[in-house]
Design a protein around this nucleic acid. Structure first.
Lengths: 233, 233
DNA sequence: CAAAATTTGTCCGTATGTATC
DNA sequence: AGATACATACGGACAAATTTT
């Protein structure tokens, strides 16, 4: 009369245990093979694999197979957070891929955050953050228009250097808001995740020492690949 | 020749749009009814509903129906974070349900974090955090053994009061590490989520003004119901 | 470069179990 | 107790992407 856990969960747990001894990049047997091994229908195996994928343990690609995922990267958050410096301190090789830099009239929310009238032109940058060549985050930031800022941002040298080149030597984090959300299709594509996988959304405002807003940004980190650290300065 | 998105996704997006006009607690039509409405198999509707559930928009209960989920709660993180005070400041009614308080030899990790020899007895507390009667988090903390601490924690008045009653009037957050993870079955049960839904894991260390570790805890927040704020002191 | 084999993704249909109302 | 509704599991078929031949 015991209520056994569902078959797919038992399979998922068995695979999870076995995955502990696997290395990132290793390929799992095909669904058909696993179904034969466990003596169940292929759909039942798929259910179990979906659970593992949700857990960020594996990643399936049609035509290819199911691969074991890479372990997480650490990322500190603080008043003086700097992406590159933080990653380098952990011995990783940071990277950045700028997808677009445009100057456009800002949306209502963006203008409000930067404390400028609605419709004011803003510099909008979008791109990906890398660690050891692996995408760990997608950012979208807006800045007030400064001479040469767009060009500097497009060079991909980072926000700190771009602002420095525009005569702003220092800035600090005013606040950060974090929440765990499922990846939407677009984001899943950028972060090489499956739709619905946990993603950490960080909404943040940076300002200069006098409190003037400089950057309002939304970054999404791949939940399974990043740990955010909050530490006192 | 157009590559249409899958049926289940189209249905999910249609339902998502309609859900914008729904109120928390509203019930969706049954799977059979939705299948009939969209002219698809029930499993295709189930796939769409699973996506909505992953997104934290709805919550399905066997036998009952599929209900619309409640909006998120905000929760600040900082050097002097206090759960109750923070929630009260947002106009919500905080609550706490203590599930267990035990004194046991600590695990290796717990002892290391509290800077005591492995195997030292520790006070271990586990429970749920509520906001307006809704579970928003599950915590598990370990403390060094202090006279009367276990009894005070069991009263459910909170960590701050329990420590105060043991002669520790003040403590601060040393650090916090955050990551987005999918809910495992146990956690899903506690937080009333579906297995795999995004959950924010906060691992934190509190210490007294002299730097002596006082509490090492892991809290899991329901991603869809909580926003964590990181602000300078 | 092209075709074939492999592998995952989607969708349908059916049946049964189990929790809720 | 009965009806309703979601959960699990099986089976088959075809499409789409990738890898191999």
């Amino acid at each position: 009369m015991t209520a056994d856990p569902p078959l797919w969960r038992q399979i998922a747990e068995t695979l999870t245990a076995e995955l502990a001894a696997a290395r990132p990049g290793d390929r799992l047997p095909s669904e058909a093979r696993l179904a034969a091994r466990f003596g169940v229908n292929r759909h039942t195996v798929r259910r179990a694999l979906a659970a593992l994928a949700e857990a960020g343990l594996v990643h399936a690609r049609r035509g290819a197979g199911v691969q074991v995922t890479a372990p997480p990267t650490d990322y500190p958050i603080g008043r003086r957070t700097r992406f590159h410096a933080a990653l380098e301190a952990t011995g990783r090789v940071p990277g950045r891929r700028v997808l677009s830099v445009e100057t456009q009239p800002g949306l209502a929310e963006d203008c409000a955050m930067l404390a400028v009238p609605e419709g004011t032109p803003l510099v909008r940058a979008e791109g990906l953050s890398l660690s050891d060549g692996v995408v760990i985050g997608h950012f979208r930031s807006v800045f007030p228009v400064l001479p040469g800022l767009a060009a500097e941002l497009a060079r991909g040298e980072g926000v700190t250097r771009a602002l420095a080149a525009c005569g702003i030597p220092d800035y600090t984090r005013a606040w950060t808001r974090l929440t765990a959300v499922p990846a939407d299709p677009l984001l899943a594509g950028h972060l090489q995740l499956r739709r619905g996988e946990p993603v950490m959304r960080a909404v943040a405002l940076n300002h200069d020492p006098r409190g003037q807003p400089l950057e309002y940004g939304i970054t999404h980190f791949a939940g399974a690949r990043v740990t955010l650290s909050v530490a006192p300065d």
